[in-house]
């Protein structure tokens, strides 16, 4: 099969697409999977007809991503420009508790060395005037607490490091 190869990745998985477009017919091969699509519209909304019916969405292309909005969700596919293997975004270890958004730490409910159970409250973060309680994803030991009450934190900032048991 001929076509243009696009190297993408999603959550660390390689998504390699071989795309062949002839007029309004588009075939997309991903590994053993073959998707045959008829192009219905290429306006602001892209619409294609697949075997299961017609689907539509909006796609935003940036240098780094192909972001597809479809059925209420967005899918950010990372683009690789060198055509080689894609280095996925650094995966955060399961034991790091990150600030889910920019806000203020209201309270720290754990201390270094604590042995905690799944669901144990760790940190309370306030954002948009609502309090959000971050809990442990599993039984764990608290390796370090990297914030204190009153501190402003950025989205993604590591608040607490855990070693999951």
């Amino acid at each position: 099969m001929s076509g243009v190869r696009h190297h993408l990745s999603w959550r660390g998985q390689d998504v390699e697409l071989l795309c062949d477009r002839r007029g309004d017919e588009l075939s997309v091969r991903r590994g053993d999977e073959l998707i045959e699509a008829s192009i219905v519209s290429e306006g602001e909304r892209l619409v294609v007809r697949l075997a299961g019916g017609q689907v539509g969405g909006v796609v935003h292309l940036s240098r780094e991503h192909v972001v597809v909005s479809y059925a209420g969700r967005t899918w950010a596919l990372h683009r690789s420009h060198d055509g080689g293997a894609v280095s996925a975004a650094v995966e955060v270890g399961g034991g790091d508790i990150e600030a889910p958004m920019t806000g203020t730490v209201l309270d720290v409910l754990c201390a270094q060395g604590d042995e905690i159970e799944a669901g144990a409250p760790l940190v309370v973060v306030e954002a948009m005037k609502m309090e959000h309680r971050l809990v442990s994803p599993g039984a764990a030991k608290v390796m370090s607490v990297d914030v204190s009450a009153g501190q402003l934190v950025d989205i993604g900032q590591v608040l607490v490091r855990l070693e999951l048991r």
């Binding site: 243009v4 696009h6 993408l8 998504v15 697409l17 795309c19 477009r21 588009l26 997309v28 991903r30 999977e33 998707i35 699509a37 192009i39 290429e42 892209l46 294609v48 697949l50 689907v55 539509g56 969405g57 796609v59 292309l61 192909v66 597809v68 479809y70 059925a71 899918w75 596919l77």
Partner: peptide
């Protein structure tokens, strides 16, 4: 598959 098809279409 719909997402892959839409992504492919946008790239072509």
């Amino acid at each position: 598959q719909a997402v892959l098809a839409l992504a492919a279409l946008s790239l072509t």
